[in-house]
């Protein structure tokens, strides 16, 4: 029995799941690396599942301006002043460019979570 299970498993493992044209794939750039950190709260690719603003498709200048004013403390925040200060101006710019370039607004698959 154990033997058959093992054999079935090894057979299952023989076929590869790798495919280069996978849906949802994206190039790895300095912007996508940094913005992935933001996705924890703002949603994957900046598409929020609710309760925290989406960033996908916003204007580059608007995102950058928000980050700069959080960092300088001129815009009040609960967490964003701490986050914005952790990045350099160049990094904040790369983050703004990444989210501005996310033009497609899709419904997040787990929106029914709560």
């Amino acid at each position: 029995m154990k033997f058959i299970t093992s054999l079935a498993l090894i057979c299952a493992l023989a076929s590869s799941n790798a495919r280069a044209d996978a849906p949802g794939s994206e190039p790895l750039t300095p912007g996508s690396r940094l913005a992935a950190g933001c996705a924890a709260c703002h949603g994957t690719r900046g598409i929020s599942a609710g309760g925290i603003p989406s960033l996908a498709g916003l204007e580059r200048e608007a995102i950058l301006q928000a980050l700069e004013s959080f960092a300088s403390g001129t815009r009040p925040a609960t967490v964003m002043h701490h986050h914005a200060r952790g990045y350099s101006t160049a990094e904040r710019t790369a983050i703004a460019e990444y989210f501005a370039s996310q033009k497609v607004l899709l419904k997040p698959p787990l929106e029914a979570l709560q």
Partner: peptide, 11 residues
């Protein structure tokens, strides 16, 4: 915000 954080990070 904490509840929204959970929804988003789980997603």
């Amino acid at each position: 915000l904490a509840r929204a954080w959970a929804t988003n990070i789980w997603s």
